[in-house]
Simulated scan of single mutants.
Amino acid sequence: MSEFLLPLIFFFIAFFYSSVGFGGGSSYLAILSLVIGEFYEIRTTALIFNLAVVTIGTAVYVRHKVFDFKQFWPFIVFSIPMAFLGAQLKLSEKTFFLILGSALLLSAFFMGLRVLKRKNENRSFSWIKRSGLGGSVGFLSGVAGIGGGIFLSPILNLSGWANPRTVASLASTFILFNSASGLAGLIVADSFHFDADFAIPLLISVIAGGSVGSYLSNSRLNIHVIRGLTAILVAYVGLRLILLHGFGMEI
């Protein structure tokens, strides 16, 4: 893959995902698996890119006063230790990508449903329900090597927990803490592998894409169009991972 094409791809991945409060970890994993041979280097690099993008997004949401810690803390506090534990699981490369692909297809399905369901609701979730959901998604995110917002956000949007921008703010913050916890889990498990010479140019690209996407997410950008495009991208990535690692088929 061209040395100029790869940073451009990562820029647009970061742009699309950050515009709806995500970090892009799932697509980073898929693309990195094509150019990096070492499994744990793929996971480490994707988590670092994820962390960089959502740090920017969270800062933007805080600045625009969308961030609501009183509502968010049960999701986050209980997800951190579960993401840490999930990241320490020793999975084969095939099992890892099949789990990730299946989870992404399910997430894309719920994202698609949310695009069709335009009506916004504001349902109250008890702190126990928020904690349970946060812990469950946190563990899955640790296993899958991503921040988990791509799983949490569609569930909350579909259930009508809050308006889309509040959910996007939570997703960004959720990914931030879970990515950091997941990286800590990789370090403790002696699975942290990072090639700075290869990754730094791509890191600059995702920071640039994440900055633009996070800014536009708080403007008049049509969030439904972006969410629909993101659902298509997520579905493609999930299907590709399952076909490639489960059946040896390329698409």
Rank of each mutant, 00 (worst) to 15 (best):
L5D: 09
L8G: 11
L8R: 03
I13F: 05
I13Y: 02
G25W: 10
S26T: 15
Y28I: 11
L29T: 15
S33K: 02
I36A: 10
G37T: 12
E41V: 08
R43D: 13
R43P: 01
T44L: 11
I48D: 00
L51Y: 02
T55P: 00
I56Q: 01
T58Q: 00
A59V: 08
V60K: 07
V62W: 07
F67D: 05
F67H: 13
K70G: 10
K70I: 12
Q71V: 11
W73Q: 04
W73N: 10
P74K: 09
I76N: 00
I76K: 00
V77W: 06
I80Q: 13
P81Q: 11
M82E: 00
A83V: 02
L85F: 10
G86Y: 06
A87M: 04
K94I: 14
F96M: 14
L98V: 15
L100M: 11
G101W: 03
M111Y: 14
L113E: 11
V115G: 10
V115W: 07
K119C: 03
N120P: 04
E121I: 06
R123H: 10
S124E: 14
S124C: 04
F125Y: 15
W127T: 15
W127Y: 15
R130L: 06
F139S: 07
A144I: 12
I146M: 11
S159M: 12
W161H: 12
P164G: 09
P164F: 01
A168C: 09
A171V: 03
F177Y: 10
S181Y: 01
S191L: 11
F194H: 10
A208T: 12
S211L: 11
V212W: 00
S217D: 13
L221V: 15
I223A: 05
T230E: 00
A231V: 05
A231N: 02
I232P: 04
L233T: 03
H245E: 14
H245P: 03
F247N: 07
G248A: 09
E250I: 12
